[in-house]
Design a binder for these strands. Structure first.
Lengths: 254, 254
DNA sequence: CGGCCGGTTGAGTACAATCAATTCTGGTGG
DNA sequence: CCACCAGAATTGATTGTACTCAACCGGCCG
């Protein structure tokens, strides 16, 4: 069971985003109507990827985009020296497969086991040009991704490692809060080095930042993948206030 | 004269971008047909801003988007400590005014004197939903902005100041090359501190990076605003190779 | 039990931030 | 045409933070 889309509670591709124009109190919503999802399902196939599998590579001919059903993916770029920079984490109902001149502009890999719809571009394009409402929904999603990318840039512009990590956690928390009812625990599907590649710091620096947050009683970690924020005030203060006054080694609580 | 759109050689709003699907050899093209531009001109008004003027502020009710006719703008976010982070520079034919839930998600200011079309959102929205071709063009433009934002993120993830500055120059050069025929000199409409806010470094660090590039004979600057690349090999090598082996103070050419 | 992988920790170094002069540039008015 | 001014850019000295490299831990799986 739970193999066919409908059995999984989904009738086809899905796009969740915040409408850039309507006000919806920070809640994401399903942008596609059931009918649209069915129409898209006709041209889609379902594909699966194992953890760490590459979904597509930068420069490959872009013949399809993907719509995540379950799991987490990362879009990344490889620097000539071999290091990777993650440009985005993609969650269920996100779109994946940005292209330019018919070629993918970044690579993409599965962070967890992944299921996705695969939408061939030619079919999608002709579908789009016939359906103005569907196009508008795609526009909404792209606006959302753009905001996300700008927010990522803001995170990267932070100088202090601890600020970056806190902003990263905020990001994840809000994403998860916008989808689920209640999140008192943040889920980290990616490992420390993935976080490092996203935040532009080394694995070691990520680890140290986490440890410092724990030492100050601001967060608590369980499974290495489940984090709770225990001091919201301090947490928000660090995110907002990159240069914390009195940040020195005088941790009066140690 | 030169007041009405047609007299300025433009028939209305314009969107330049690279089609994500067709292959066009890195050249940007006008996405809108003359007819579309006229239809948009009907709902648009022309606005002017002086250098350093704020176009809109984060959190303002988003009632319009802007389409730059001439000049350069910057989208930015202000950190609680007062410092600003520039998320994008916007050139002629770019769109400006990203919103979420009816509010602008960032502020925006004119870097140079600026002329732009102002497109009220309600009118634009109803126009969009009636015109599938136009929507597709907006989608193209958004993809382009998304790529640009990801590239910016990649730049920000670089550790060495010199790499950031070189990547920044590459960015500008390619933008200008995609529009004009030939660019042997890069134009920097923004000042050093703007560059610092975009690249996530201080004004002083930007200056030092420029000086080092000049000292190594890699670039030459004239007006503070006109830069020539004099050693393309070294230039590209720095952009690509963040951690240059033998990077020390032994600059054999000094 | 041993190896492996992800994560943590330590010592030393390199780089950019900071803060504070100082110089350069372009524009203005005498 | 030149002297002067204000803003932009450069430079210097010092400090802080994250990187590097490398050792070490702890759980998990064969």
């Amino acid at each position: 069971m739970a193999k066919s889309p409908s059995a999984m509670g989904g009738q086809g591709p899905a796009i969740w985003a915040i409408d850039p124009w309507a006000s919806s109190a920070g809640r994401m919503q399903q942008l596609l109507t059931d009918e649209e999802r069915v129409r898209l399902a006709v041209i889609a196939s379902i594909v699966r990827f194992k953890k760490r599998a590459v979904i597509y590579r930068e420069g490959d001919r872009a013949d399809a985009i993907f719509n995540i059903i379950s799991g987490v993916a990362a879009a990344y770029k490889k620097a000539p020296d071999g290091s990777e920079h993650i440009t985005a984490f993609l969650l269920p109902d996100d779109l994946l497969g940005l292209s330019e001149e018919g070629k993918y502009t970044n690579s993409s890999k599965a962070i967890t086991p992944l299921t996705a719809y695969r939408l061939p571009l030619p079919a999608l394009r002709s579908r789009l040009s016939k359906d103005a409402a569907l196009e508008l929904h795609v526009i909404c999603k792209l606006c959302q991704e753009l905001r996300q990318a700008q927010r990522h840039g803001f995170l990267l512009s932070q100088r202090r490692a601890i600020s970056k990590v806190v902003m990263f956690l905020q990001l994840l928390e809000q994403l998860q809060a916008a989808r689920a009812e209640q999140v008192e625990e943040i889920d980290l599907p990616m490992d420390r080095s993935d976080i490092g590649e996203y935040t532009g710091m080394t694995l070691a620096a990520v680890s140290r930042a986490f440890r410092r947050l724990i030492a100050r009683g601001i967060i608590k970690v369980r499974n290495r993948r489940r984090v709770t924020i225990t001091d919201r005030d301090a947490f928000d203060k660090i995110a907002g206030h990159p240069i914390e006054p009195g940040h020195g080694m005088s941790n009066r609580a140690s």
